[in-house]
Design a protein around this nucleic acid. Structure first.
Length: 516
RNA sequence: CGGGGCGUAGCUCAGCCUGGUAGAGCGCCUGCUUUGGGAGCAGGAAGUCGUCGGUUCGAAUCCGGCCGCCCCGACCA
């Protein structure tokens, strides 16, 4: 087996660069001419379409309906909720004109387009849609009978980020944003928590990513929210990625926008609202969670093609027979199903060297590769290769046997990825109950470019916001969440014990880490 | 937005210090040879040297502005 890897540098040598190389090698996306914005290529967009379809089914199953709201939000809308406005103020793209005029350059005579027709009121390109959707909710909701109102939108949003990274933080990104209104605090909280669990389950079952569900501290909350629930994923450089959030907004937005209803006793009340979202950042998380030094590794549920059939055609005279056999196998496999959907199978008939094709699909992360050559037709055998195994690992299987097992193998691959990611995460969360150990943990870690970052700490925590922010600044970390349930962690104490910093007895736990 | 690095062929980069209007490898195209594997040989196509301006007889090369990318930080549901 060759020691050569398909991706250079390796994860260990330079993780950020490795990430970019995987995005390129797997043909997922590229930077565009527009600053901070990406072109999502078919293989990457195919992953997004699958995420979208499968999540959408879960939203529908829990009573939500899709709608669509404007891209442009009147500036005055954003001003209505002070905390919200302040939170997004520094990253808004603003539309100030509504036409262009052709003018000729005085010296060169070259035509130039200049903006003209200044708008009386500028528009903000939505960084999120609470305000424009809230305005609609205010019109739609009159009585308690109109509640709950459960709406979701699939859309693009724009946040003028200072430091973009493909998929992880781009200026424009694709996401879904759920917005709901409820009669009572309890109902709204139940909604926010239900979606929170739905996200955690989705990442586990569809992306093979184990997450830690928890609550954000005040310092990390969504601007304007009362409670922000988050799912936090650990990726292979041990950094945390906030993979999805679900907010209980209290009556803050209802009061700012007059979302009121006539209650059961006839009095006018403010609705309790929620909002929640996941974005194309999930794809970045996926790459960093499962990718290896040969490229992307896709969990089968979101692989645009789950099985790649590679015809081996060494001789022109057997070529047609091999291709026919491959196409027939693909057709048969497509009648099999994986989790209720037909298997997604592709025959790669490109006129390329066999090795080129094989490595192309390794880099793209296709879960299963099947090779069929002239000799296999007679013997009814296939050569099976799995992306959760080394590139040269192969198994010769009887074709009919494989057809029956295909979906199970995909499940197995999913299980392998989830188990690996879970083991990695659990091995990199440590219990910490003293300030000295806490500081030492962050201070002694190498600050290299490679995947050698410090793991997470789990601590008892009863500190103040100021104390949290001081520790965060000092070590360039943050409280990722106050976990709903503390993760498996050797030596972790349970029950009411002293806060590691203040000594105040507490049952609360915090997870600390560096994040993207 | 601060600090650092960079922008030359599709990709990775050399050339820049010591100005004289472009090179390599990979990839691509063609042909031959190979063929259970990221092949070999030969030939070929491909670049307004990020952009605008300045210095100069002459700028990829020197100087300045701007744009973009990468890393670190600040910021960031």
């Amino acid at each position: 087996m060759s020691a050569k890897t398909a991706i250079s540098p390796t994860r260990a040598a330079d993780f950020p660069e490795w990430y970019q190389q995987v995005v390129r090698a797997a043909d997922l996306a590229e930077n565009s001419e527009t600053r901070g914005c990406m072109v999502i290529k078919p293989w990457g967009y195919g992953i997004w379409e699958l995420i979208q379809r499968q999540l959408d089914a879960r939203f529908k199953a829990t009573g939500h309906r899709n709608a669509y709201f404007p891209l442009l939000i009147p500036l005055s809308f954003l001003e209505k909720e002070a905390e919200h406005a302040e939170g997004f103020a520094t990253e808004c793209a603003v539309v100030t004109h509504h036409r262009l005029e052709m003018v000729r350059d005085g010296q060169t005579g070259k035509p130039k387009m200049v903006p003209t027709g200044e708008l009386a009121e500028p528009y903000v390109i939505r960084p999120t849609s609470e305000m424009i959707i809230g305005a609609a909710f205010a019109r739609w909701i009159e009585s308690y009978r109109d509640l709950p109102l459960l709406i979701n939108q699939w859309a693009n949003v724009m946040r003028w980020e200072m430091r973009p990274r493909l998929f992880l933080r781009t200026s424009e990104f694709l996401w879904q944003e759920g917005h709901t209104a409820h009669e009572t605090r309890d109902e709204a909280l139940a909604e926010a928590r239900m979606i929170h669990r739905l996200y955690a389950d989705f990442l586990r079952d569809h992306l093979a990513i184990p997450v830690i569900p928890g609550e954000k501290t005040e310092a990390e909350r969504f601007p304007g929210a009362e409670i922000t629930l988050t799912i936090e994923a650990m990726v292979q450089d041990r950094k945390a990625i906030q993979a999805g959030t679900s907010h209980y907004l209290g009556q803050n937005f209802a009061k700012a926008q007059d979302i009121t209803f006539a209650g059961r006793d006839g009095t006018i009340e403010f609705a309790h609202t929620t909002s929640w979202g996941v974005s194309t950042r999930l794809i970045g998380t996926l790459i960093m969670a499962h990718g290896d030094d040969d490229g992307l590794v896709l969990p089968p549920p979101v692989a645009p093609w789950q099985i790649i059939i590679l015809p081996i055609t060494p001789k022109p005279d057997t070529r047609d027979a091999v291709l026919d056999s491959c196409r027939a196998l693909a057709e048969t496999l497509r009648r099999e199903s994986f989790r209720g959907e037909p298997l997604r199978v592709h025959v790669d008939e490109r006129e390329l060297g066999g090795g080129d094709k094989k490595w192309d699909w390794i880099r793209k992360g296709a879960p299963i590769r099947i090779e069929i050559g002239p000799r296999d037709i007679g013997s009814r055998k296939i050569c099976l290769q799995r992306r959760d195994q080394p590139p040269d690992a192969k198994e010769f299987a009887v074709k009919d046997e494989f057809i029956r097992r295909a979906a199970d193998i995909l499940d197995e691959i999913h299980g392998t990825l989830l188990a690996r990611a879970t083991a990695f995460r659990d091995a990199n969360i440590r219990w910490c109950d003293s300030p000295d150990a806490f500081h030492a943990h962050w201070d002694t870690q190498p600050d290299a470019a490679g995947a050698e970052g410090p793991g997470w700490l789990l601590t008892p925590w009863a500190g103040s916001r100021d104390q949290e922010e001081e520790l965060s600044r000092r070590h360039r970390i943050s409280i990722r969440c106050l976990p709903v349930e503390p993760p498996a962690c050797p030596a972790a104490a349970t029950g009411e014990i002293p806060c590691f910093l203040t000594g105040t007895p507490t049952t609360r736990r915090a997870i600390w880490g560096r994040s993207y």
